[in-house]
């Protein structure tokens, strides 16, 4: 429940510029110098921060002409911010602060048959990160040496939902520019919205480059999840309730663990799941609902 409230507050704080219906424009204040921890499009009329993925792609797309003129901006400010967050908590921002992750959890509540996502698909996010955030924006350039923001342009469903659709209403003159690019992005958004109903957080697990960046830190961050093999009975309750379909009993600090703590607080009856902070473990003697821990079951 606490997590839900934090997700609601984080979504609101990331999108709290409520004057846009009057200004008919996006927020342009200094808060936009800071990157949001989650995926939140900076062209959303209500957005108050900068999307780290959009910012990174822009650095890559303008790096080449910058190098020629001695104006070198490698995006270290963004990489440093994400690396710092990742070093502290790994993928925790995905579980607690990202509006698009929150949306996927809400949509998944729609009653339907549910399907697992094949494991191999969860590795697709890494080539997407390398190609669409770094390589294509840098290497595919126009005659002046400028690249483009490939992920924003061809894929990002958060951009379509938060910026594309609202901006077309806010600035009707943009509607004349709608073409194949927009329909492609609308199709991708529709695909993921539908998939969210049937599977747990499909975009986070399969396609999100920001989640891919944070996931690289899961095994080495200050905060880590731990499992007590003496208490764990392999009952799979953690897996059944996990919003990311992580088999916690097999893989703690998995690339897809978003540290939502649902397994620890709401699933494990045996008190086998806890966390540690750089070696200091918070051990739990009780399972959920105060049930006594049955050792070695």
């Amino acid at each position: 429940m606490l997590r839900r409230w934090i997700q609601i507050i984080a979504t609101f704080l990331s999108n709290s510029y409520l004057l846009f219906p009057f200004t008919r424009n996006i927020y342009q204040g200094t808060l936009k110098s800071f990157c949001t921890p989650g995926l939140n499009c900076y062209s959303c009329p209500a957005a108050t921060g900068a999307c780290p993925l959009g910012a990174l792609q822009n650095f890559m797309a303008t790096l080449r002409p910058g190098l020629q003129t001695g104006y070198q901006h490698f995006g270290l400010y963004v990489i440093g911010t994400l690396g710092l967050l990742g070093s502290l908590a790994g993928r925790m921002p995905c579980g607690w602060l990202c509006p698009f992750g929150f949306l996927q959890e809400l949509v998944h509540k729609i009653p339907s048959r549910k399907f697992e996502i094949p494991q191999f698909l969860t590795y697709v996010k890494y080539p997407l990160l390398a190609l669409f955030i770094f390589l294509l924006p840098f290497f595919v350039a126009d005659e002046f040496g400028y690249g483009t923001t490939w992920f924003c342009k061809f894929i990002c469903p958060a951009g379509t939902l938060e910026a594309g659709i609202p901006m077309l209403f806010l600035k009707p003159e943009l509607q004349a520019l709608v073409g194949l690019l927009f329909y492609n992005k609308l199709f991708i958004l529709g695909l993921f919205l539908l998939w969210m109903v049937y599977s747990r957080r499909p975009f986070c697990r399969v396609a999100c480059p920001l989640g891919a960046i944070y996931s690289l830190f899961n095994k080495h961050s200050v905060f880590k999840m731990t499992r007590d093999p003496d208490k764990c009975t392999n009952c799979k309750a953690c897996y059944n309730n996990c919003p990311m379909e992580v088999r916690f009993y097999e893989s703690q600090n998995d690339i897809d663990c978003i540290r939502c703590l649902k397994c620890m607080n709401e699933s494990c009856k045996f008190g086998a799941i806890s966390y540690e902070i750089t070696g200091f473990e918070e051990s739990r003697d009780q399972g959920i609902k105060g049930k006594a821990v049955v050792r070695g079951q």
């Binding site: 499009c41 062209s43 999307c51 924003c152 951009g159 943009l174």
Partner: peptide, 10 residues
């Protein structure tokens, strides 16, 4: 972040 990003909109 303060410029409207036409790529994001699609």
């Amino acid at each position: 972040a303060t410029r409207i990003c036409l790529n994001c909109i699609g």
